[in-house]
Each structure stands twice: as C-alpha cells, then as structure tokens.
C-alpha cells in the first residue's frame, strides 16, 4: 500500500535566528480560500459565525485567533486558517490552499526594521497593529503579511520558500549586525 509522507514548505530551512530576530515555520492545519459569490458576503459571514465562531474580516483585517482565524486575502477573497469550512456550497467559491503557501513567523524587538528592508508598506507596530493583514510585496515576491501579537506571519508561494527564507534571513542579519 502506498504511504505518502508529507514535507513542509520550509523543510530544512528553518528556524533561523540573528541577534534578537527569529524566523520559524508555521504549518497550518488547513488553509481555505473563500470568495463569496455576488451578494453573499453577509451570508458567508453568518455561516462562518455559526460554524466556527468568526466573521469575515474587513479589508486589511483579520478575525479570530488561535485555532480559527480568517484574514482578508485580496479583493473579495478571504483565507480561513484552521478548520475546513462547512456550509458554503453555493454561496462562495471554496478552494483548498493548505499546500500552496509557505508560512513563516518573524519575531523580535523591532522586527519592523527587518521588514522595512523588504516590504513597501509601513510595518511599524503603530501603523500595522495586531489584527491587520496586507497583500503586498516582499522583495520581488507577492506575499500576505498579518500582524499577530508581537510577530508577523508572512505567507509566500510554496515554491518560493527558499527565496522567502533567504530574503528575510538576510535582512535579519543585516539589521542585527548594526544593533
């Protein structure tokens, strides 16, 4: 009988630390993109609320925490982390994205200085507080970045995991060297 074994996107690449900064891999149980069909955003939000206890986030936002989280993921698109959603048939396009993303978490005092080397959006805590999420660039890659507590959760295409880690680790080292 065939027995497939799983590998995470950053297998063998993480963790990395430089000075006060650490970069670790996060392996979500499931990632599901949800795109409500026309006029169904409210129904989708209600369904999520009753099934999973969270609503759809507003633009640039995140809802939930811990085991269930939803982040805004682009125009008319949300990403649910945690359970696979139920009850959205016919009201939203639901697509499994669990394996599509390399997810890493950057921590450390002034981690925003690291991201300032890479991201064309203001990542300073005051401007990008807990519960916010953006789609933007990191180097030449398109990414999703969500503030989670003191850290940043960063998602890039799975196939780009090597570059993602290389870019962030390089900036961590450069900033750490000057501290």
């Amino acid at each position: 009988m065939l027995d497939l074994t799983a590998k995470t996107p950053c297998d063998g690449l993480l963790p990395v630390s430089h000075g006060p900064f650490t970069l670790t891999e996060i392996v979500p149980k499931a990632l599901t993109s949800i795109a409500p069909f026309k006029g169904q955003a409210g129904a989708v939000s209600d369904t999520l609320q009753s099934a999973h206890g969270i609503t759809l986030p507003s633009i640039g936002g995140a809802t939930g925490n811990g085991s269930v989280q939803a982040i805004w993921f682009g125009q008319g698109q949300y990403l649910l982390t945690g359970p696979a959603p139920d009850g959205l048939d016919g009201i939203a396009a639901v697509t499994d994205q669990t394996d599509a993303w390399a997810t890493v978490r950057l921590d450390g005092h002034e981690a925003a200085e690291v991201l300032a080397r890479l991201v064309p959006v203001d990542m300073r805590p005051a401007m990008f507080p807990d519960g916010t999420s953006v789609r933007t660039l990191l180097g030449h890659m398109t990414v999703s970045i969500t503030r989670e507590g003191e850290g940043y959760r960063i998602m890039a295409f799975r196939s780009m995991a090597v570059t993602l880690v290389h870019e962030i680790a390089g900036a961590m080292e450069a900033v750490a060297q000057r501290l």
């Binding site: 795109a35 698109q77 697509t95």
Partner: peptide, 19 residues
C-alpha cells in the same frame, strides 16, 4: 471578469502551488 464581463459571478484563484 472584473472589467469586461462584470455580469458574470465567478471567482478565480491560482492553485498552481497547491498541487
């Protein structure tokens, strides 16, 4: 879908990396 055929109710997403 966003500009030429706004009449259509359709969602697209890349799954290149998923599979």
């Amino acid at each position: 879908k966003q500009v030429l055929r706004r009449d259509l109710d359709v969602a697209t997403i890349s799954v290149t990396e998923q599979w």
